[in-house]
């Protein structure tokens, strides 16, 4: 069954920063992965971190604690 479902997409200012964030999240056990920035989002560099929409508050807290900068968080419908 091919259906779109909402995903939380976090945009960053640079590709290298996006890659560092993915490595950090993997090490910290935070769910998600890098994807090419969906066309709906115009902010940030070409790569974005994709995770579950319900994780938004968690990511905002962790990013604030760790001083991780990001351009924006968006909910986008993607093919599951």
């Amino acid at each position: 069954m091919r259906r779109k479902k909402p995903a939380l997409v976090i945009a960053f200012a640079s590709t290298a920063h996006a890659m560092r964030v993915e490595a950090f999240c993997a090490a910290a056990g935070l769910p998600g992965r890098l994807i090419p920035v969906p066309r709906e989002i115009t902010a940030g560099c070409g790569l974005a971190f994709k995770t579950l929409p319900e994780e938004e508050a968690h990511f905002r807290t962790v990013f604030a604690q760790e001083g991780i900068e990001y351009e924006g968080m968006y909910t986008v419908d993607l093919w599951g």
Partner: peptide
């Protein structure tokens, strides 16, 4: 990273 991104896209 690009190869992974390509397969996602």
């Amino acid at each position: 990273v690009l190869a992974k991104g390509f397969l996602f896209a």
